[in-house]
Amino acid sequence: MKAPTFPRIEKLNKRRQLIIDTALRLTIEHGLNQVSIVDIAKESQLGPGQIYRCFRDKDEIIENVILNITNKRMQGLGFNRHDNKIKAEELASGYPNNIDQDELNLLYEVLNTSRNKKINDVLATTEQKMQKQGQTILNEYYKNASKEEIRAISEVVATLTEGVIFRKAKGYSDDVDQDILEKIYIAMLQAIDSVFCNRDIEK
């Protein structure tokens, strides 16, 4: 059997991305459990057979949807490095790590309802990658901090970020003044700097 040609691979990849984008839009609009392969095929103007040539089943499509969202989070993680004002604005807005409201809501729904082992594995693997990448960034910034201290700082930042995702997705923080919240986040981030950056200067 001949290996697929580059144009054919490119066409397949574009079709896969179309299916993923369509599935994301439909699950955001209707909910994770209310969307079928037939719905995705109809909305993307493909036949069910074309869908199945790209993905094994709906679960595999959703795995890739979640992977797309978590990859966005990975890209957003290191973008601003250590600009406390930008990080505080991001936290106060309720949309950390480069994800928007709809993606955040879907991610929250998946976290709370998915019994799919592969989806949960994708989320766990991404969390480990984000933790590792975050610790690398922190190591560059807090040059004299110990491994244990870096791990503790990353846990504080992760707790803040995950807390924001949870509360925003549930609507618990919608009535909070964003400007006041931003000032508090800046103070918290500066407090961490005051402990570790001042020590760096002293050394």
Results as ranks from 00 to 15, higher is better:
Gln50Lys: 15
Glu89Gln: 13
Thr161Trp: 00
Leu77Cys: 08
Asp39Glu: 07
Ile37Pro: 02
Cys197Leu: 12
Thr22Phe: 02
Ile99Tyr: 01
Ile150Glu: 03
Asn116Ile: 05
Met130Gly: 11
Ala41Ser: 12
Ile20Asn: 07
Pro96Arg: 01
Ala3Cys: 09
Ala152Gln: 09
Tyr172Asp: 14
Asp59Val: 04
Ser93Pro: 02
Lys85Glu: 09
Ile119Lys: 01
Asp39Lys: 14
Asn112Pro: 02
Glu10Thr: 12
Ser93Asp: 09
Asn198Tyr: 03
Ile201Thr: 11
Lys118Cys: 06
Lys170Gly: 07
Glu202Asp: 09
Lys143Glu: 06
Lys11Phe: 05
Asp100Cys: 11
Val110Thr: 07
Arg167Ser: 14
Ile119Tyr: 00
Ile37Phe: 06
Asp121Phe: 11
Arg73Glu: 12
Ala41Thr: 04
Lys72Glu: 10
Lys168Ser: 14
Arg56His: 11
Leu138Glu: 05
Ile165Asn: 01
Gln190Tyr: 04
His82Tyr: 13
Lys87Asn: 01
Leu18Thr: 09
Lys132Ile: 10
Ser154Lys: 04
Asp100Tyr: 08
Arg56Gln: 13
Thr159Asp: 07
Lys117Gly: 07
Phe166Gly: 02
Leu138Arg: 06
Ala23Ser: 14
Leu91Cys: 08
Gly31His: 08
Val38Ser: 11
Leu46Val: 02
Glu148Met: 15
Ile40Trp: 00
Val122Asp: 00
Ser173His: 01
Gly94Gln: 03
Gln101Arg: 14
Arg53Pro: 00
Asp177Gln: 09
Ala88Cys: 03
Leu104Pro: 01
Ala23Ile: 03
Ala191Phe: 11
Ala92Leu: 05
Gly76Cys: 10
Asn33Pro: 04
Val156Ser: 12
Leu91Trp: 05
Lys11Tyr: 06
Lys87Val: 02
Arg151Trp: 02
Arg115Asn: 15
Gly78Arg: 15
Arg115Gln: 15
Lys118Val: 07
Ala187Gln: 12
Lys11Asp: 08
Leu106Ile: 05
Asn139Gly: 09
Ile61Ser: 05
Met188Val: 09
Arg81Cys: 05
Gly47Val: 09
Ser114Trp: 02
Asn71Thr: 08
Arg25Glu: 12
Asn198Lys: 13
Ala152Trp: 06
Glu162Ile: 08
Ile62Met: 14
Asp57Tyr: 03
Gln135Arg: 14
Gln50Ala: 15
Ile66Lys: 00
Gly49Gln: 10
Asp59Met: 06
Ile186His: 03
Thr125Lys: 15
Arg56Met: 10
Ile20Leu: 13
Glu10Cys: 09
Asn105Ser: 15
Thr125Pro: 01
Ile28Arg: 05
Lys203Glu: 08
Asn198Thr: 10
Ile86Ala: 07
Arg73Ser: 13
Pro4Ser: 15
Gln133Arg: 13
Gly31Lys: 14
Glu127Leu: 13
Ala92Met: 08
Asn144Val: 12
Ile62Ser: 00
Cys54Lys: 02
Ile19Leu: 15
Arg151Cys: 02
Tyr185His: 10
Lys117Cys: 03
Gly31Ser: 13
Gln135Cys: 12
Glu89Thr: 07
Glu140Asp: 11
Asp177Glu: 10
Leu181Ala: 14
Gln128Gly: 09
Gln75Phe: 06
Asn112Tyr: 08
Glu182Leu: 06
